[in-house]
Amino acid sequence: MIKIALALCTLILISGCAHDSNTATSGASDSGTSAEQNAPHHQATDQWVGRWTGVEGLFLEVSKDEPAGPGHYRLHMRYGLDADQIGTFEGQATADGIRFNRGNGPQLLRAGDGEATGMKWLMEKEDCLIVRTGEGYCRD
């Protein structure tokens, strides 16, 4: 009886190890598939390259950061009326838009319309990029 119990335990352990190695193998291919699915984020954000206009002289200029590679951008912007509210920031494409850091912390530049900017002067616009409500830039 003890020999049968030991044999069953051995079989269970062996089958468990075989299952783990299959999981690891299938997990590796899943992560490769996931990486392939995440790679093209920059295809959408590449369409944002160019100049965008805000209100009262505010602007955003999106350009590709060629040395950094696909999905990397330089964001030159005047984002406020104070003299120090202008700068150039490095951004990277994500599924949600372009992530970048500014003096007031991490930011996300995302697509939207004039209504999403929350600014009455841009309400009628359809092609806009928004950092947050009250900070948006649109194209005519």
Rank of each mutant, 00 (worst) to 15 (best):
K3H: 11
E135L: 13
F89L: 08
A39C: 00
A44P: 02
L75I: 13
D30C: 06
Q107E: 11
I14G: 04
T53N: 13
W121A: 13
G80A: 10
A93T: 06
L129I: 05
D82L: 15
N22D: 12
K64A: 14
S34H: 08
C128S: 00
I2P: 10
Q107D: 08
V62N: 06
G105A: 06
H19G: 09
N22I: 12
R102P: 00
T133H: 06
L129P: 00
K120F: 07
H72F: 06
Q92L: 05
T33G: 07
G105I: 05
G50F: 03
G91N: 08
I4H: 14
L81I: 09
R99D: 11
H41W: 15
T133I: 09
R99K: 13
G27A: 15
K64N: 13
T23W: 08
G80C: 10
N104H: 10
K125Q: 14
L60R: 02
G57H: 14
C9M: 09
E135K: 06
Q85P: 07
G69T: 07
A24F: 14
R132L: 07
T45A: 06
A93Q: 06
E66A: 14
I130Y: 08
T53E: 15
W52Q: 02
F59A: 07
A35S: 12
L108P: 09
L58M: 15
C9S: 10
T53R: 12
I130M: 06
Y137K: 04
G136Y: 01
V62Y: 06
F59K: 08
R51W: 04
A93N: 05
A83N: 07
D113L: 01
Q92P: 00
L6D: 09
K125L: 01
W52S: 03
T94A: 05
T45Y: 02
M1G: 12
A35K: 13
A35R: 15
A44F: 09
P70T: 14
L60N: 05
G87W: 00
G118N: 05
A68C: 10
A7F: 11
E61A: 10
H76E: 11
L108H: 14
E135C: 04
H19P: 00
G32Y: 15
P70N: 14
G134L: 08
N38Q: 12
H72K: 07
Q47N: 11
D84C: 10
A111R: 04
E36H: 09
L8R: 10
M77G: 05
V55W: 03
H41E: 07
D127W: 01
G97F: 05
D127H: 07
D113C: 03
R139Y: 03
L81W: 10
Y73D: 02
M119I: 13
V55K: 08
E66Y: 03
I86T: 12
K120R: 09
S34P: 04
E115Y: 07
A44S: 13
W48C: 05
G50R: 04
A83R: 10
G112D: 03
L108G: 10
R74N: 08
S15A: 09
G54H: 00
K125H: 08
